[in-house]
Amino acid sequence: MSAVISIQNVTKMFRGSDGLLVHALDNINLNVEEGEFVSLIGPSGCGKSTLLRTIADLIQPTSGKITVNNKTAAQARKDREYGFVFQSSTLYDWRTVIKNVELPLEIMKWPKNKRDARAREMLGLVELSGFEDKYPWQLSGGMQQRVSIARALAFEPNILLMDEPFGALDEMTRERMNNELLRIWTAIPRMTVVFVTHSIAEAVYLSDHVVVLSPRPGRLATIIDINLPRPRGPETRDHEDYFRLTSQVRHALRSGVRDEVLE
């Protein structure tokens, strides 16, 4: 097996607004295999977003190295390997739903008819056919987030990076979105997903591996393998291993926080 994403000794320091250094990530080592679904979980401020953004080359590590498909993260970004989904849907207000999905395709210089066809196909995938000509404000939060997933997938990136994409949704909508995401991920062969969340249930339900981070400085506490059978569905949440794994993640999270309190 080959690691699609290889993170080696990555440390990130920020200069805070008060001039003090913030130690956001401390010596992170992590490999993600092709086609895997990996979640990053940890209390807020532990560096989840920072780690995801260093993978995406939106920010650069202070030290350490990230390779993606044997390239630097910067090269991978230039090669359009990443689809990024933010916590807020980050749709452009002035574009209709379909034009939002076409945005990356315009930048990647797709011809107009191919763009249109692909955007429609992607909206079908997230079950938003018929909403092409709406503006973002006319959609509910869950629908907006589905548009942003369609947009992230439109140019067939190898790697989907998601930063608490369903964090702002209510529990019911979130569970439905989880199922949608699994369906989409299954439909696209060999797509690797790195998914940031602070929901234990969500992380266990979706992932092959749950990476638990502990805060201040952001350290990799442990990795918990989720060997629940796929395809997963509502019955997965009743699986006896599901309970065992969620409590295992909960304990890992708690011990990470307790360390911090003792320090």
Binding site: R53, A56, L58, R77, K78, R80, Y82, G83, F84, F86, S88, T90, Y92, L103, P104, I107, M108, F155
Partner: peptide, 18 residues
């Protein structure tokens, strides 16, 4: 411009002009 709107563009490796 919201920070994430800009980062979205960067994730596509968009040019300054775009």
């Amino acid at each position: 411009v919201p920070e994430t709107a800009l980062e979205l563009m960067q994730s596509y490796a968009a040019s300054q002009w775009e």
